[in-house]
Each structure stands twice: as structure tokens, then as C-alpha cells.
Simulated assay, not measured.
Amino acid sequence: MPAVPPSRVKPALRLRVVLSEKVAIGPGKADLLEAIRAEGSIAAAGRRLRMSYQRAHDLVAALNADFREPLIETSTGGARGGGARLSPAGEAVLDTFRAIEAEAAAAVEPRLEWLRDTLAP
């Protein structure tokens, strides 16, 4: 497959917010929160993101431990009786992270364009 010419690729910013020595949130965790919101299940969110259930579950456990309030609420129950959803705190953290991403991207867009324009043809 031929490479896409630089002029057709929109420069992008991938942001990771470091909140403490041990806590950060970036696109991966935000995508997982969005997938849980959409799917109502940790397992389904993991599949949607092509992530193992164990990895998704570990990230959920970390997110819930890292913040004062759980970001993801789970309910147990077999045969499709269980599920997961974002708590109000989870919704707020996700919305805040996405707003930070959008504001940062808008702030650096001219510089990203300049960097892209300096690429060799």
C-alpha cells in the first residue's frame, strides 16, 4: 500500500495527562470509558477496542482505584444480567479529558501544520 502524501494527512496531537507519579489518563483509558458507555459492558468494550478482557478489567480497576469515586460501576449477574456503566464521576472525568484534548489540539494546530509542511516530499 503506498504511503499517504504528507499533504493529505492531518497532523494530530495525542495527549496524556499525568495527574500524579502513578496516575495518568490518555487516549486509551478515555477510549475505554467511551466504549463502556456505549456497550454497557467491560467485556464488550474490550472487544470493541480489540483489548483482552483482562486488560480492560485491569484498567477499570486502576481507574476506580485512582480517583476518589469509582468511574465505572458494575453489576453482577449471569446470562447477560450484569453490566457496567460510567458513574457521574466517570462521565465528568471523560468529558473533562476530551475537553482538554480539544482545547490543546486547537491551541497547537498552527504549529502542527507548520511541522507537517516541513516534511520532505
Rank of each mutant, 00 (worst) to 15 (best):
S7V: 13
A65W: 01
V9K: 13
L71G: 03
W114Y: 15
A43M: 04
I25L: 14
A79G: 13
E21K: 12
E73Y: 12
L19R: 03
V18M: 05
A44Q: 12
E34G: 14
A35S: 08
A65E: 12
A120S: 11
V4Q: 08
R116Y: 00
T118S: 08
P110I: 02
G40H: 08
L33G: 10
G40E: 02
F97V: 00
R16Y: 05
R55I: 12
L19N: 04
A84W: 05
A12K: 10
G46N: 03
V93D: 01
D117H: 04
I42C: 04
S41A: 06
A106W: 04
G28A: 12
A38S: 11
V108A: 05
G40T: 07
L63K: 00
A84C: 08
L115A: 15
L71I: 04
V4D: 05
S87P: 04
P121T: 12
K29D: 15
V4M: 11
N64I: 02
E103Y: 06
R55E: 14
P70L: 13
E39H: 11
A44C: 05
A43T: 11
L86H: 03
I25Q: 08
R14N: 14
S7R: 12
F67E: 06
D95N: 14
S75E: 15
T118N: 01
A89C: 10
V60K: 06
A84Q: 07
P2K: 10
